[in-house]
C-alpha cells in the first residue's frame, strides 16, 4: 500500500498493520470458519437442514417478528425523534438520555423483566389478559421484546437529521402559502426518508439475530415460538454442529445483505443531505 501524498506523521505501517492483524484474528478468521465448515457438509446436507419445517418456521418467526417490531419502531421512533428535536417539555434531557437504555441494559435483564411484566399475573400482562390478549410465550411477546431492543435505532438516526433541518426552507414554503400539513408531508418527510429507512433497517437487522431478550418471553415451542438463534443453540447442545452451522450461515447471509443495504442507504442519505 502507498500513501497518496507525503506526510511527516509516523506510524502508518505499524497502526495499519496492527489494525488488519487484530481484525483478522478476532473477527475475520473466526467468521470465515462458518462458510468453511458449511462447505465441507455438501449442498444436499445444508439444504436438508435449512428446508426442515422446524427451521423454516423459526426463520419465518425471526424475520416476521423483526419486521413487525421494526415497523412499530419506525412509527413511534419518528414521533419520539420529532418531539425530542422540536418541542420542549419538562424533563426532556432525562428522557433523551434514557432513549439509549436498550443499548446499555444487558439483554438477559431485559428478557426476564419483560417476561415478568407481561406474564399472565404481571403488571402489564394481567390487564391485557382480561381482554383475552396473551403476550408472554406468544409471537406477540417476541415482537414486544424486539421493539424494546430496536427502539433507539430509529430515534437516534432521525434525531440529528431533524435537528439539522434548515428552517429557512420551511419558512419559504410557509410564506408562499403552504399549510403546515403540506410542509410536513411534502417537504420535511421526503427529506427524512433515507434516515428513516436506515433506522428501520438497523432495527430490523438487530432484531433478526436477537437472542437474550427474546429467549425468556418466547416460551420456545418448536414450530410456534422458536426463533432461529435459539434453534442454533439447541442444535449445538445436541452436538449437531453441522445443523447449527447451516442455520447460522443463512442468518449470516441475511445480516450481510442488510449491512450492504444499510451502507447504500447511508450513502443515499449523505448525498441527499449534502444538497
Amino acid at each position: 500500500m502507498k500513501t497518496r501524498h507525503h506526510t511527516v506523521l509516523p506510524g502508518f505501517r505499524l497502526t495499519l498493520g496492527f489494525t488488519i492483524f487484530y481484525l483478522c484474528l478476532i473477527v475475520l478468521v473466526p467468521l470465515m470458519t462458518l462458510p468453511a465448515r458449511t462447505a465441507t457438509l455438501g449442498w444436499s446436507a445444508i439444504w436438508q437442514t435449512i428446508s426442515d419445517p422446524r427451521v423454516v418456521a423459526s426463520y419465518r418467526l425471526s424475520v416476521g417478528a423483526a419486521l413487525a417490531a421494526a415497523s412499530i419502531n419506525a412509527v413511534f421512533g419518528l414521533i419520539v425523534a420529532w418531539v425530542l428535536a422540536r418541542y420542549r417539555f419538562p424533563g426532556k434531557r432525562i428522557v433523551d438520555a434514557f432513549i439509549d437504555l436498550p443499548f446499555a441494559l444487558p439483554t438477559a435483564v431485559a428478557g426476564i423483566t419483560l417476561t415478568t411484566l407481561y406474564a399472565p399475573n404481571g403488571w402489564l400482562g394481567a390487564p391485557l389478559e382480561k381482554y383475552g390478549i396473551k403476550v408472554a410465550f406468544t409471537p406477540l411477546g417476541i415482537t414486544i421484546a424486539l421493539v424494546f431492543i430496536g427502539l433507539p435505532f430509529v430515534v437516534r438516526t432521525l434525531q440529528p437529521v431533524i435537528e439539522d433541518l434548515d428552517v429557512e426552507i420551511e419558512e419559504a414554503a410557509t410564506s408562499l402559502g403552504a399549510s403546515r400539513g403540506v410542509v410536513l408531508t411534502r417537504i420535511i418527510l421526503p427529506y427524512l426518508y433515507p434516515a428513516w429507512l436506515t433506522g428501520f433497517a438497523l432495527a430490523f437487522a438487530r432484531a433478526v439475530g436477537e437472542y437474550g431478550s427474546v429467549v425468556f418471553i418466547s416460551g420456545n415451542m418448536p414450530m410456534r415460538t422458536e426463533i432461529a438463534p435459539l434453534l442454533i443453540i439447541t442444535k449445538l447442545e445436541q452436538y449437531d454442529y453441522a445443523g447449527a452451522t447451516a442455520i447460522a450461515l443463512v442468518m449470516l447471509l441475511m445480516s450481510f445483505t442488510l449491512l450492504l443495504v444499510v451502507n447504500a442507504l447511508q450513502g443515499w442519505s449523505s448525498r441527499k443531505l449534502a444538497h
Binding site: 473477527v27 473466526p30 462458518l34 438463534p229 449445538l236 447449527a244 447460522a248 449470516l252 445480516s255 450481510f256
Partner: peptide
C-alpha cells in the same frame, strides 16, 4: 461487522 452478526453466531464461530 460484529454489529451485524447475531450474538449466537458470534459465539458459534469460536466453538467451530
Amino acid at each position: 461487522l460484529p454489529f451485524a452478526v447475531s450474538p449466537v453466531i458470534s459465539g458459534l464461530v469460536f466453538v467451530l
